[in-house]
């Protein structure tokens, strides 16, 4: 269980990015974190992962606990060893290394060799394409494949909680659907997920609970299906990307369909 209490984050001396956030992610949960650009979604994930320092940010108040361990005092490598692993915004694969080496890098945070072997098998089952491309330079993969690799790399340390920052960003709708299916698979295999998205349709289709951030504060927190049905939310967040009201409604429909669709196991086969 991840608990975030009254979390405050600053960048440098002046920019206050989060002013008092409370969140819970149960061990079997998928939490969607929605919000427009600059709301503080990535900042939240960085705070959990311990990578704020790399962005000249710091936690200035509040606490983050995971299974009784306080995370906000740990460095990122130690957070990974607690089983909390992030996939950063924009994928950030190691473009100059091979696909296989990227996965090996992900395995550095694994707790044992046996765990690493099991994780590797799981990753190759979820993403057969990564096995096919093992020796290829990661930078040559397509956007969708790079996102698979970024997720696969994170899974290599067998996380119990996976933090995904806008995995759908810049991907074609078909690929986004696949990513969504994969996130469901990962969840069904027993990994809790925090899914940060601007694509609310996709996120609400996967999550069981959702939180909405607005300029550094928690505007709303509710079960995902309630949120998908609330009219205010539909107008404000689901329609956020839509060109028109009709498009917004179509997106809302899509979210509903995705939610009610049978959660079948699916495989990414490239």
């Amino acid at each position: 269980m991840l608990t975030v209490r009254n979390l405050r984050v600053r960048y440098g001396r002046s920019v206050s990015a989060l002013h008092g956030i409370d969140l819970d992610v149960p061990d079997d949960g998928v939490l969607a974190v929605l919000g427009s650009n600059g709301a503080g979604k990535s900042t939240l994930l960085r705070a959990v992962s311990g990578t704020l320092g790399l962005h000249r940010g710091s936690v200035t108040g509040g606490e983050i606990h995971y299974d009784g361990t306080r995370l906000d005092k740990l460095d990122p490598a130690a957070v990974v060893r607690q089983g909390v692993v992030g996939v950063p915004e924009g994928r950030q694969i190691f473009a100059r290394m091979s696909v296989e080496e990227n996965l090996r890098a992900g395995g550095i945070g694994a707790r044992s060799a046996a765990e690493r072997t099991a994780a590797s098998r799981r990753v190759h089952e979820l993403f057969p394409v990564l096995a096919d491309r093992a020796s290829q330079r990661a930078g040559l993969l397509s956007g969708g494949e790079q996102q698979m690799l970024a997720i696969g790399r994170a899974l290599m340390s067998s996380p119990r909680l996976l933090l995904l920052d806008e995995p759908s960003l810049g991907l074609a709708p078909k690929i986004v659907e696949r990513i969504a299916a994969i996130i469901r698979d990962i969840h069904e295999q027993g990994t809790a997920v925090v899914l940060v998205e601007q694509n609310a349709v996709m996120a609400l289709g996967v999550a069981d609970h959702a939180a909405v951030l607005e300029v550094g504060t928690l505007a709303l927190s509710a079960p995902a299906d309630e949120l998908a049905e609330s009219e205010d939310v539909q107008r404000l967040y689901l329609g956020g990307h839509a060109e028109s009201e009709a498009e917004a409604e179509r997106q809302v429909e899509a979210a509903h369909e995705q939610r009610s669709a049978k959660r079948r196991l699916s495989r990414w086969s490239g």
Binding site: S49, G50, T51, L54, D75, P76, A77, V80, R81, V85, G86, V87, P88, Q92, I93, F94, A95, R96, M97, E101, R104, A105, G106, I108, G109, A110, R153, A154, M156, S157
Partner: peptide, 24 residues
């Protein structure tokens, strides 16, 4: 070696390396 992988990972992307569990 794992050392080499960690080294190259950190050289290429500090944040991604840290998120992979590389001890900086």
């Amino acid at each position: 070696s794992n050392w080499g992988i960690a080294m190259r990972a950190q050289a290429e992307n500090k944040e991604a390396a840290a998120l992979s569990g590389v001890r900086s």
